[in-house]
Simulated assay, not measured.
Amino acid sequence: ILLTSEFFNNDFKEFDKDIIFITTHLTHPQTIKNLKHNNRNFMLAYRGSEIAKYLKIFKYGELSEGHSVANVAYGLAVFLRHKNIIFIGQDLAYGEDGFSHTKDYQNLDKHEGHYQRDFGNFRALAYGGKGFVESSFIWNLFRSFLEKRIHEANQL
C-alpha cells in the first residue's frame, strides 16, 4: 500500500550501504521509486499469486507464502538454510499504554481505536513468560502461522 512506501522515503547514507532490500512483485510502485531515489540496492521477488500461477511465471522461483513481513522473511531465511534467525522489532502486542507503535511512529493515527476494539479478546504470553499482553485478531493469526512454520522447519 502507498502508506508503507513512505518507510523507504529517506536516506540513511552509510547505514544502507550493504543492505539489499527485498520486496514482492506486488509492492506499491511508489516503494520502488523511493528505493531508486535513495540509491538503494533492491530486488523484486515473486510471492505466490493466482495470476502468476495462471501465467506460469516460475522462472526465478518464489518467496514462501506468508501474511506478514516476518513470515516471508522467515521463509527466506529457512530457504537460505540459516540456522540462527533473530527477529528484531516483530512485536505483535499492544504496549501497556494501549498503543501498537511508539509515539513518534509517523502513521500512529491510522491505528487509533484498534486497542479498544480488541482489548481482552486476544491475550498472549508475554516475552520471557512473565504475564500476558494484549494482541489483536490479525496479529494473533500472524503469530500462530509463524509459530507453526517454525515448528515445521524444526522437524526437518
Rank of each mutant, 00 (worst) to 15 (best):
I1H: 12
L2G: 09
L2D: 12
T4L: 11
E6D: 12
E6M: 07
F7N: 01
F8G: 10
F8V: 12
N9P: 00
N9V: 00
F12S: 13
K13W: 07
K13R: 12
F15A: 05
D16M: 02
K17L: 14
D18P: 02
I19C: 11
I20H: 05
F21A: 13
T23G: 01
T24G: 03
T24D: 14
T24W: 10
L26P: 08
H28S: 01
P29A: 01
Q30K: 13
T31Q: 09
I32C: 05
I32K: 03
I32N: 04
K33T: 14
L35T: 01
H37S: 10
H37A: 15
N38F: 12
N39C: 09
R40D: 11
R40W: 07
N41C: 12
N41D: 14
M43Q: 10
M43A: 09
A45L: 15
Y46V: 14
R47I: 14
R47F: 02
S49M: 05
E50I: 14
I51Y: 09
A52Y: 02
A52R: 05
K53G: 12
K59Y: 11
Y60N: 11
G61R: 03
E62V: 06
S64V: 09
G66P: 02
S68G: 06
S68H: 01
V69F: 06
A70R: 02
N71S: 03
V72W: 02
V72Q: 00
A73M: 11
Y74V: 01
G75Q: 02
G75D: 08
L76Q: 04
V78L: 03
V78M: 08
V78W: 08
F79P: 01
F79K: 03
L80V: 00
R81Y: 01
K83H: 04
I85Q: 03
I86R: 03
I86S: 00
F87D: 02
Q90P: 00
D91Q: 11
Y94S: 07
E96V: 00
F99Y: 02
S100H: 00
S100F: 04
T102C: 11
Y105A: 14
Y105R: 12
Q106K: 07
N107T: 13
N107Q: 14
L108N: 03
D109V: 02
E112D: 06
E112F: 08
G113I: 04
G113L: 07
Y115M: 13
Y115G: 13
D118N: 07
F119L: 05
F119A: 10
G120D: 03
G120M: 08
R123V: 05
